[in-house]
Computed example of a mutant assay.
Amino acid sequence: MTGKYTAHQLAMELGVSDSTVSRALSGKGRIGDERSREIVKIARERGLIPSSAVQKRTGNIGIVLPVDAWDGAAFFLECMEGIVNSLVLGGYDILLCMAAENDIKPVKRLVESKKADAYIMLRALEEDKQIKYLSSIGKPCVLIGSCDMDVAQIDSNHISSGRDLTMYLLAHGLKNIVYLGGKSTYVVNQARLRGYFEAYERLGMTCNRKMVFQDVITTGQIQYIVEEFRVKQVDCVLCGDDLICSRVLQALMLNGLRVPEDMAVASLNNSSFLDHYTPQITAVEISAKDLGTAAGQQIVKMLKGKENNSRHLLSYNLLLRGSTRGK
C-alpha cells in the first residue's frame, strides 16, 4: 500500500462512516466494544495511529449527584443502591461528582479528567446546564428524570400519577385540598403539579389556585401554612414529595390536628421516611431503587452499543391507606 493511509480509507475498507471510525479511535463514541476493538486493531495494522493514541475504557461511570442529596431525601439513597448494584454486575466502578444546581464546573472537571466512560445524572432542572453540557460531549449519558435534550432517560409518569391520586381524593369527597410542592424549577415537581391541575379539568371541577403552594422548602414555611388550615377549612393536604409530607405530619401534630379525623394527608412520593407514621400514608409508590437499577443497566447497554438515547417510563402504584379514609 503506497501513500499515507487515512481514516477515510479505513472507513471505506470496513464499510462504516468516517464518524464511526473517529469515535472508535477517540474512545468517545457510542459504539459497541467489539466493533470498536475491530476498528482499533485494523487501524494499528495499517499504521494509521500509534497504540498510545487510542483511549482505553476506564471501567468507571461518573454519577452526578446534587449537593443536597443526603439532606433527608430517601430517594437518592435508594436510587444509588440500584445504580451501584447494576453497575457492579456490569463490571463497572463509580465516581461520585457532587454539584450544586446548574454548576457545571465539577462536572466539567470530571469529564476533562477522562476518568469515566459514561455518566448518570439524578436530577433534572428547567433549563439544566449540567444536562446540556453532558449531552454535548459525545459519551453515553443517562438521566434519572425527564428533559427535552438528547440523553437517555429513565423516569416514571409523574403527570399521570399526580392526576390519578388527585382524582381519587376528589372522588372521595375531599374538595378543599391544599397542594404543597417543592422547588418549582425541578422538572419532577412541574410534572406532579400539572397532573394535579389535570385532575380538576377531567372532573369538570374548578381548582382554587390560592390553595397551591410551590417552593415549600423549610419547616418554618410548612408550619405557617398548616396554622392557616383551620381558617381556610382545609380537609386534605396533598404533598409533592415524602420529605414535605413528613414535615407536614409533624406540623399537624404540633397544631393538635389528627390524621385523618381532622385532616386527610397524601403524598405524591412514598419512601421509608413515611413508614413509621400511623395511620399509614396514602401515597404514590415509585421505586427509586428500580429507577437506579434501570439507569445502570441502560448505561451498560449503551457502552456495549446495544442501546441508544431512548426514554423508559417505569410503572407506579397508588397506595390507598388510612391517612385519607374515614374523615
Rank of each mutant, 00 (worst) to 15 (best):
I154K: 01
E227G: 11
K289W: 02
E127C: 15
I225L: 13
L180E: 06
L291Y: 12
M121G: 00
R46L: 00
C147E: 02
G91S: 08
D242M: 14
R37C: 12
V259H: 08
R209E: 15
V187F: 04
R325A: 13
I39M: 02
L249I: 02
I49Q: 12
A264C: 13
D275E: 06
Q9P: 11
D242C: 12
C239R: 09
L122F: 07
K304Y: 11
A283I: 07
P279L: 05
A11N: 10
Y316E: 05
A53M: 14
G3N: 14
L122G: 03
R123P: 00
G181R: 06
G62F: 00
T2L: 13
E81D: 13
L165P: 10
D117T: 03
S136C: 10
D71S: 14
A69N: 05
L87T: 05
I154E: 02
P140I: 01
A288T: 06
S272G: 05
L169W: 09
K306T: 05
C239G: 05
I83H: 03
Q190C: 05
K4I: 14
A124R: 01
L257N: 07
T166S: 07
E228T: 12
I39D: 04
M302Q: 12
T185C: 15
T218P: 03
G90N: 04
K4M: 10
C245W: 07
I39T: 09
L243P: 01
I144E: 00
Q55W: 05
Y196R: 07
I244T: 09
A43R: 09
K129W: 00
A100C: 03
G326D: 15
M1C: 11
S267P: 08
E101R: 09
Q280L: 10
S184N: 10
V226I: 12
S160T: 15
T218E: 13
K289Q: 13
L96N: 11
L314C: 02
A43T: 06
E13R: 13
R325W: 12
V67W: 06
A24S: 06
A53H: 14
N208G: 04
S161W: 10
G220V: 06
N317S: 15
R321C: 07
T185D: 04
T185E: 14
T206N: 05
D71R: 14
I49R: 12
Y5V: 13
K210A: 13
Y119R: 04
G91H: 03
K108L: 02
L143M: 03
T278I: 11
L180R: 00
S135D: 01
V248I: 11
L95W: 01
S287I: 02
R247D: 07
G32Y: 03
R192E: 06
Q297P: 02
S315N: 14
Y200D: 03
N85S: 10
S22R: 07
L313K: 14
L125Y: 15
G59H: 01
Y196F: 15
R46K: 13
M205K: 15
Q280F: 05
F229G: 09
I244C: 02
I63F: 01
S26R: 01
R311K: 14
D117Q: 01
N102T: 10
R202N: 15
T6P: 07
